[in-house]
Every structure is written in C-alpha cells, then in structure tokens.
Simulated assay, not measured.
Amino acid sequence: MHPARQDHPARLGLAARLRAAGSVFAEDEADLLLDAGDGDAVRLRSLVQRRLGGEPLEYVLGWAAFDGHRIRVTPGVFVPRARTGVVVAQAAALLHRYDRVVDLCCGAGAIAVALLERVGALDLVASDVDPDAVDVAAENIGDRGIVVAGDLFAALPARFRGTVDVIAVNAPYVPTDAVATMPTEARDHEHRVALDGGPDGLDLHRRIAAGAGEWLRPGGSLVIEVSELQADASAAAFAAHDFATRIERDDAVDGTCVVASLPA
C-alpha cells in the first residue's frame, strides 16, 4: 500500500463497504482493488461491484497469491490455497534439477509454478480434467512444462511411464455431502469437479493410489494433500498398493499431506 493512501477517503470508504459486505480483511482488499483499478474510475467501479456481489476476490483480480507468486486464475478454476504449500515443500525436498515431475489435478498449475521456482528446471507435465484449468495452467507454466487435459494419468506422455521422480497432487478431497457446507465463494463459484471427492472425500485418492505405481520410477514418490482427519485413511489407500507412507503436517500453512514412496 502506498503510504499516502492509508487514510485516503476513497480507501476508507471502500474498506467500509467491503466490511459491511462481510469482508474480514477489508483494508487489504481495498488496497488490492484500488491497485487493480489503476486510477480508472470505471474499471474500479466494475471490480468493486463484482466483489460486493460475492465474486471471489481472486477472480475479480485475475490472480491468487501462492508461495510468493501471483497465479493467474479465471472464473470457475480452483483457487490455490496457502495450505497446499505443504505439498510444494515436501515435493521440493525430494527433487533435483531436471527431475521428471507430474503436477496431477493441477488446477491453475500453482504447484508446478512453485516447484519450478524452488527447484529449477524440471521435466514437468501438469494434467487436469477441467479444460478451463488446463487453459489457465498453460498460461501460468508457459514453456517451462507441458499441460495436458485428461482424467488423472490418461493424458500423460508414454515416455513418463515408470520414470517419474515425483507426482505432486492436490486432488479433490471434500466429501460430497460436505460441499454444501463450504464457504459460498468456493461452492458457488469453483467448478464442482475441483471440490467433490466422493462420499468420503477419498475416491480420487484411491484411484490415484491404484494407478501411480505404473508411472513412478522405483524409489519414486507421490505427495498428495489431504485433510488432517482423512490423512490416515488416505495413507492406508497407498499402503494397500505397496507404498511406504508417512503423513506430514505444516501448521504454518494449516496443511497436511501424505508422502507415499515406492521401494527403490
């Protein structure tokens, strides 16, 4: 925020309107909207009306903050959450430059972007079943990787079979009945396919556990986000397919993941 803006009537007034509409971080949102308006009163009015109408801030701005990056997002595409940083941290610790990586259920490609920044050049493929997500992930990743559309592993290139060092995953894990209890910004705006994990939330986890061994190299690992309450059940799904598993928790981002590794 520009220091001269702190007590500016326009900022204070906008923050008050946002707070009245339910924003918890009204001042921060006001600053972001004013920056996005860039001095254009008509553009600012449009952005503010969209936000006051309940559209997620990330869609209004066109980007989401994740692991120090601005990740482009478009309406309907899953918005990266800070808690997925636990997947990035665990995957990055297993990787070296030029390793072969899959960002599975990639959404906007946030995990891929963060891993490329942390590790360096990678032989990377990102995949998602949602064509809107594939489009925006391709923008975010650019020429640093390949983005494909398909159901889980279906669209991965044949050269990746049995050779992948790390698969990083943020698959849907919200139980079907719990989707209705999610914040309105998620349940009313993000595509259902990015949220609904089936009756117990772990349908995709079980499918991924069944198929990942075909793609990982011996000793390769998969890192998958999950809720703390589901972590034991997710780990058991991978253990049933001969993975050695451990559960990692990062309280700083309120994130939990399962790390599942094949024997070397």
Rank of each mutant, 00 (worst) to 15 (best):
A233S: 13
V226R: 14
H191M: 02
L222H: 07
D242N: 11
E185T: 03
A194H: 00
R187Y: 08
A239Q: 12
F243P: 05
L222D: 04
L204C: 14
R187V: 13
A209C: 05
G213V: 03
T181M: 09
R217Q: 10
A210P: 04
R249I: 13
E185L: 03
L204K: 02
A236F: 12
T181W: 06
A233G: 08
A239F: 00
R249T: 11
V223K: 05
A235R: 05
S227Q: 00
D250T: 01
A244G: 01
A210G: 10
H191D: 07
M182G: 02
T245R: 13
E185D: 03
A194G: 06
G198D: 09
R187F: 12
E225S: 11
A244V: 15
D188Q: 00
D203P: 03
A231G: 02
A178L: 03
H189F: 15
R249Q: 12
G198F: 15
W215L: 12
A212M: 12
A236Q: 14
S234E: 03
G198R: 00
R217I: 10
V179I: 13
G197K: 01
V179H: 11
D232W: 05
A244T: 13
A209Y: 09
L216P: 10
T181R: 14
S221F: 08
A210N: 01
I224V: 15
A237Q: 06
A239G: 11
E248L: 14
A231W: 08
A186T: 09
S227R: 11
G201H: 00
V193F: 02
M182W: 07
L204W: 14
I224Y: 12
I208W: 10
G213Y: 11
D196M: 06
L195D: 12
A236R: 15
T181A: 15
L195C: 07
L229R: 13
D203E: 15
E228S: 15
H205T: 12
D203C: 04
S227L: 13
A212E: 08
V193I: 14
L216Y: 13
A210K: 02
E225R: 14
L216N: 13
H241I: 05
G201I: 06
A240Y: 05
A239Y: 02
L216S: 04
